[in-house]
Amino acid sequence: MATTLSRRKLAGNAAARLTSGESKKAVLRELAAYLLDTNRKKEAELIVRDIEAMLADAGTAIGTVISARTLSSDALMAIESFVKSQNTAITNVVLRERIDETLIGGVKLELPGHQLDASVKAKLEQLTV
């Protein structure tokens, strides 16, 4: 009886191949074929999250910065260095930007498996006397 490979194992394999320099297209095509074959295409998004987490451990952090207004390049640089300071294994930071006015101010940083909510909205919600 064939055993089902865990998402973590699938992601580990894909992340290792990507960091070793294999073609991204080829790796993802094989992964997609496996997911279709085993009827697990619903897990694709979760596997991507796992791959991102493993890539971060391998030195490349892919994250999203959400802010109320467009951030200056200095601010983005500061966030990048903050991410590197939190995990010394990270040498390369790739940040996607998103605007969400409901945050009022500050930033929200989403990294694989981690987050930092330094938005004004979150602080107001947390502020309980």
């Binding site: 995990n87 989403e110 987050q115 930092l116 602080k123 947390q126 309980t128 006397v129």
Partner: peptide
């Protein structure tokens, strides 16, 4: 309270709910 908030400035582990029902939540991450 402000001091408590100021201290809380590091990255926090975060996951996501993938399924929920009957009082049980399944969390990824």
């Amino acid at each position: 309270a402000i001091a408590g908030l100021e201290k809380n400035e590091g990255l926090q582990s975060a996951g996501v709910v993938i399924r929920v029902g009957d009082g049980v939540a399944w969390v990824h991450g």
